[in-house]
C-alpha cells in the first residue's frame, strides 16, 4: 500500500505528521476542513480514536474522510474500547479501505473521559496489539492462529512517553514495541529538549532507530491557560521553568506568538538530535497555524506533499494495495 510516511522514513527524509481530531457529531465536513488545512504540509495525519476517552466519530470513519480529502491518515486504535476480536476486524477494515498507517496504543482509562461509567476493555495491551498487527501482516495469521485470506499491508506505529516513570525503563519499553513490530513511534510532547536528548541517547544505545523511526511530539503553548493545562493535566509532560518564565515574561497579547516561536525552536533543536526521524505536531484547535509553524521551521511544504490526490481515488477510496 502506498504510504508517503513510510517512503519518507525509508528515504531518511525528515517526516512531518500532525493530528486530526474527529468531531463530536456526524458532520463529515469538519474532518474535511481540518484535512484541507494540512494537505500538502504533512506526510500523514493521525486520526485520533475517542481521544481522552471522549466519544467522537470513529477513527476508522474519520480516517476514510481524511483520505478522501487528500491527506494520508494514520489511524489510531486503542485497546480501551474493543476486545481482541473487534481490534483485529477493525485492523482488517482499515487495510481494506486503503488506510496505509495504523498507530496502536493502550489508550486512556475511561475514568478520565465523558463516559466514566463505561466498561474498560483492555483485553490486549498496546504492546500485544502491535504484536498482533505484525503477526497479521507478516505471518498472515490472526491471534487464533487462523490464516488470513488476504493479508493487510499497513505501516505499524506506536507511542511512547519518554518522560513518564520509571525513568530507567522507558527506552526498554520502546524496544519491546519495536521488537513486537512497531516501525515508527510518536512521542509525548517534548518541551524539555535536553531531557529528550538524554532519552534519545538511551534509545540509540539500544539500536532502536535502525528498526523503529522515532518521531518527536511537539506543540505550541499558545496561552498561559494552555501552558497550565498541559503542565498539570497531560501526563508525563515536563514544561521546563525557563519556558514558563519566558511565556510569563511577555505581554499577554504576545504569549501566542512567543509560544509558536518556542515550538519552532524546539523543532529546530530536535532536528539536530541523531536518531530523530521527524516531528509530530499536535496543536488542538490550531490546525490553521500548523503551516506557519512548519514553514518557520524550514520544513518545506513541497517536500512533504503527499502523493495521494483526491482525484486519483476511485469513489474517494482506493483499494488496498
Amino acid at each position: 500500500m502506498m504510504s508517503s510516511l513510510r517512503d519518507a522514513l525509508a528515504d531518511g527524509r525528515f517526516a512531518v505528521t500532525a493530528e486530526i481530531g474527529p468531531p463530536r457529531g456526524a458532520d463529515p465536513d469538519v474532518v474535511t476542513r481540518k484535512a484541507e488545512l494540512l494537505r500538502g504540509w504533512v506526510h500523514a495525519a493521525n486520526v485520533t480514536d475517542n481521544q481522552g476517552a471522549h466519544v467522537r466519530m470513529s477513527s476508522l470513519g474519520a480516517a476514510v474522510l481524511a483520505l478522501r480529502a487528500g491527506v494520508e491518515p494514520v489511524m489510531q486504535i486503542t485497546c480501551r474500547d474493543r476486545n481482541r476480536l473487534a481490534l483485529q476486524s477493525d485492523l482488517l477494515s482499515a487495510a481494506a479501505l486503503g488506510i496505509p498507517n495504523v498507530l496502536l496504543l493502550t489508550g486512556d482509562h475511561p475514568i478520565h473521559g465523558d463516559h466514566p461509567d463505561g466498561k474498560p476493555v483492555f483485553d490486549l495491551d498496546g504492546v500485544q496489539l502491535v504484536w498482533t498487527a505484525r503477526t497479521m501482516r507478516d505471518d498472515h495469521r490472526l491471534l487464533s492462529g487462523r490464516r488470513l485470506t488476504a493479508p493487510p499491508t499497513w505501516t505499524i506505529g506506536a507511542v511512547e512517553n519518554p518522560f513518564a516513570p520509571p525513568p530507567g525503563f522507558r527506552a526498554h519499553r520502546l524496544l519491546k514495541k519495536a521488537v513486537a513490530g512497531a516501525e515508527f513511534v510518536q512521542t509525548q510532547f517534548v518541551f524539555d529538549v535536553p531531557r529528550f536528548a538524554a532519552w534519545m541517547s538511551e534509545v540509540r544505545d539500544l539500536g532502536i532507530p535502525e528498526r523503529c523511526a522515532v518521531i518527536a511530539g511537539v506543540g505550541p503553548l499558545r496561552s498561559l491557560r494552555v501552558l497550565e493545562h498541559v503542565r498539570d493535566n497531560v501526563p508525563g509532560t515536563h514544561v521546563p521553568d525557563a519556558l514558563e518564565r519566558r511565556l510569563r515574561g511577555v505581554p499577554s497579547a504576545r504569549v501566542d506568538d512567543e509560544g509558536v516561536t518556542a515550538c519552532v525552536e524546539t523543532i529546530q533543536a530536535l532536528r539536530e538530535i541523531p536518531g530523530v526521524a521527524g516531528v509530530h505536531v499536535m496543536a488542538f484547535g490550531f490546525e490553521h497555524g500548523i503551516p506557519e509553524i512548519l514553514s518557520r521551521s524550514d520544513l518545506d511544504p513541497q517536500e512533504a506533499t503527499p502523493e495521494v490526490e483526491p482525484a486519483a481515488l476511485p469513489g474517494g477510496v482506493p483499494h488496498a494495495g
Binding site: 485497546c79 493502550t106 486512556d108 482509562h109 475514568i111 478520565h112 474498560p120 483492555f122 495491551d125 498496546g126 504492546v127 500485544q128 507511542v159 511512547e160 512517553n161 518522560f163 513518564a164 516513570p165 520509571p166 525503563f169 526498554h172 519499553r173 519491546k176 509525548q188 501526563p235 508525563g236 515536563h238
Partner: peptide, 28 residues
C-alpha cells in the same frame, strides 16, 4: 487498572502515582 502485562502506560504521574488511583503508586 488497565491490566497491562507489558509495562506501564504513559499516564504514570511524575512522582510515580497511578493515573486512575492516584493514592497508589503505579504497579509497574
Amino acid at each position: 487498572p488497565k491490566e497491562l502485562r507489558n509495562g506501564p502506560c504513559g499516564g504514570v504521574g511524575a512522582d510515580g502515582r497511578c493515573e486512575v488511583h492516584p493514592e497508589q503508586p503505579c504497579v509497574w
